[in-house]
Write a protein that binds this DNA or RNA. Structure first.
Lengths: 102, 102
DNA sequence: ATAAAATATGAACATATGTTCATATATAAT
DNA sequence: ATTATATATGAACATATGTTCATATTTTAT
């Protein structure tokens, strides 16, 4: 095939996809997202369940929050995080399915 | 929810998913995989079409090859690469669709 | 106003990753 | 055998990323 006959992805599309996959590429974030796919969670709850430091969880949540993959609401002193991007969670679920059934 | 009531991903599953997403997280590899989803390609063809050095392409191909995401056959001096993992290419396509229709 | 609890954040550090450069390997042609 | 072509690979380098540690911020209770 000649170069000019190829279909190319738009640079923005490539950047966007790369960014999404980058987020999904870290084991810690996979665990957090999988947890949030089951129930909304406070920061401390996530830290306890995943046996991580509060700080590490919070840093990761800030990454997910900045990319609008998750959202939160406040209950008193507590922030409750939950899913905010069906597409990305769907990618994660598809990857889990493929990985478990092979 | 109590910690013992959560569903957890198996460590191998987490590692596997993370590895797949890590591969898909690099713009260069996204371009290569997208190209290979359209047609099988020689190394030099990929390098020309994507305007990259032969060495850089070859390094990335070796990563994709080691993870069995692509395969190759020889034609004389030329190696022709092609897809070898429908699941992963399906993940890529889903991400592209989501990214383009939002 | 003060203290405690929950969360966020900046700096520092170690590790991982992608490209380049130089060179090696393999096949084909003469 | 020698040369040319196609591809692979190791080392070096720069950049990106995740965690920890210390500390800041925000809200509630007293």
């Amino acid at each position: 095939m000649k170069t000019e006959d190829h279909s190319f992805l738009k640079p923005e599309t490539i950047e966007h996809i790369s960014q999404i996959f980058k987020v999904l590429a870290d084991p810690t974030r996979i665990k957090i997202l999988y947890l949030l796919s089951q129930e909304e969670c406070s920061v401390n709850h996530i830290a306890e369940v995943l046996e991580m430091s509060q700080s590490a969880v919070s840093h990761q949540l800030s990454i997910l929050r900045n990319l609008r993959l998750i959202k939160y609401r406040r209950e008193g002193k507590t922030l409750i995080y939950s899913c905010n991007d069906e597409h990305v969670f769907s990618l994660l679920k598809q990857a889990i399915d493929h990985s478990e059934h092979q």
